[in-house]
Design a protein around this nucleic acid. Structure first.
Length: 419
RNA sequence: GCUGGAAUCGUCUAGCGGCAAUGACAAGAGACUGUAAAUCUCUCGCCUUCGGGCUUCGUAGGUUCGAGUCCUACUUCCAGCA
């Protein structure tokens, strides 16, 4: 295979659905799909080494252009993300589109998929991101020194507020940053809307995201070979929970020359399947699709069934750090396992379970006042949870290839969610 | 033995006349989905029809409308001197 090629091949479909198993080819290796990409926002997965990632069967890592924006030049100098990070397999970078929401309308809030949680948007004056047609103005709240003088009312800061820096990121900036970082796959710059945004706002935002997609594509073409290997670009589909918006944007971006597609949005759990179906019925079948930011087993199963090929999510590592560990019979809360001699899951093939480290011991490390103990816990717990999700995608792939997806899905869901 | 000082919710701690009583830790429950997350929320004397009721700050008295807070005695602990 040529070093410069990107490709996707479908190996087998799930009969009667949009789902498939396949292989994505990138300059840094293949990704057998469905696959879970580990999240290493700043170039490393928290508390996991590249060696750990290999050991638990990770195939690809997702990093973030926004978080690496100030390091992109030195990453380019080192030959790109793979060389710089020590993870030499396939990589993907997000554009910063998630931060438009997480630092803007969703600042200080959790991203929930439950209707009951009653999502509201953060007031404009408190936001650290402001959206304009040209791009997004980000305010960096850390290490504030520079005082923003008056006469900057177009910026999302109060007068005389101390902030370190104002960053402007639009499609062109995001593409340049991502092309310097040099992941195998990039995301077009998009705006992720929140569950609280109206149809009208979503429509307006979606049109802008589509214009940004076009601009992303144009800028990306200029720089995609700068590091000596071909970097690919996915267009990102937004449109909230509305079928007309979703189908229209999928058709529109689907006709553009992207290498694949990101399926984005803040979803209610009950809507996920429909939204993915609307998008994937319209998108070209022969291009890979990445479902952005989801990893609960039911979400991955629906995603795979509805034609998503790759996934990423911070939940496995974050929840590991917070004491929630995954098992086939549902999640456990480590708090309840003081002095327990049990293993998390005696059939698990992760390094932590293979070493026979008990829940009691894990809890002790987690609750320890020693940072060293805690960090050991974060490593052991992250290894377990990430391996659990990777194994889930491996088993889904296996089931698709064997024509047993439906059977596998039902059995898994029954055991995991006790229904 | 004498002289000081101290005793508060599992632990440490605030409290100098209006207090069911501060904060931290521990404990318990929940959350977390393209990482502002080694984070966040809630509970943490007993009962409650959620209005409130009851019992609490070493023990026993006292002063006061009112005491964890002031006074007396006792108990225990700490420090200094013998």
């Amino acid at each position: 295979m040529s070093k410069n090629s990107f490709g996707f091949k479908i190996e087998k479909r799930i009969p009667g659905t949009l789902g498939r198993a396949g292989v994505i080819k990138t300059p840094h290796g293949e990704i057998k799909t469905p696959a879970f990409m580990v999240v290493g926002t700043t170039g490393a997965v928290r508390y996991l080494t590249p060696g750990d990632l290999r050991e638990i069967g990770a195939q690809a890592m997702l990093s973030n252009g926004y978080h690496l924006r100030n390091k992109s030049k030195s990453i380019a100098k080192d030959g790109g993300l793979a060389k710089w990070s020590g993870w030499d397999g396939p990589t993907l970078t997000d554009s910063g589109g998630f931060q438009v929401m997480s630092l803007g309308s969703g600042l200080g809030k959790v991203v929930s998929m439950e209707r009951e949680k009653g999502v509201t948007n953060t007031p404009h004056k408190e936001r650290l991101a402001r959206v304009t047609e040209l791009g997004v103005i980000f305010k960096d709240p850390f290490g504030g020194e520079d005082i923003i003088k008056s006469g900057t009312s177009h910026l999302p800061v109060a007068e005389n507020q101390k902030v370190k820096k104002i960053d402007f990121i639009g499609p062109e900036q995001s593409m340049r940053i991502q092309c310097r970082i040099g992941a195998d796959i990039h995301m077009a710059f998009d705006e992720l809307t929140s569950l609280a945004d109206s149809y009208e706002y979503n429509k307006k935002s979606l049109r802008r995201t589509e214009r940004w997609a076009k601009r992303s594509l144009k800028e990306h073409l200029k720089h995609r070979d700068d590091l000596g290997y071909r970097q690919s670009l996915y267009g990102v589909l937004q449109g909230g929970r509305w079928e007309d918006l979703r189908r229209k944007t999928a058709k529109k971006l689907g006709a553009m020359d992207f290498d694949g597609y990101g399926l984005g949005g803040a979803f209610l759990k009950e809507d996920l399947g429909d939204i993915l179906r609307w998008c994937n019925e319209e998108l070209p079948e022969n291009k890979p699709r990445h479902l952005l930011g989801l990893s609960r087993p039911d979400d991955i199963l629906i995603g795979a069934e509805m034609g998503a090929d790759t996934f990423d999510c911070v939940a496995p590592t974050r929840e590991a750090r917070h004491g929630k560990l995954y098992t086939r019979d549902g999640d456990i809360n480590l708090r309840k396992f003081a002095d327990s001699e049990e293993l998390i899951d005696k059939h698990c093939d992760c390094p932590t379970c293979k070493q026979k480290i008990t829940c009691g011991r894990l809890r002790e490390l987690w609750k320890s006042t020693s940072l060293e103990d805690k960090e050991l816990y974060y490593n052991l717990a992250s290894l377990h949870n990430v391996r659990f999700i990777i194994r889930l995608t491996e088993e889904i792939r296996e089931a698709i290839l064997n024509g047993k997806f439906e059977e596998y899905k039902n059995e898994f869901l029954k055991r995991y969610y006790h229904k």
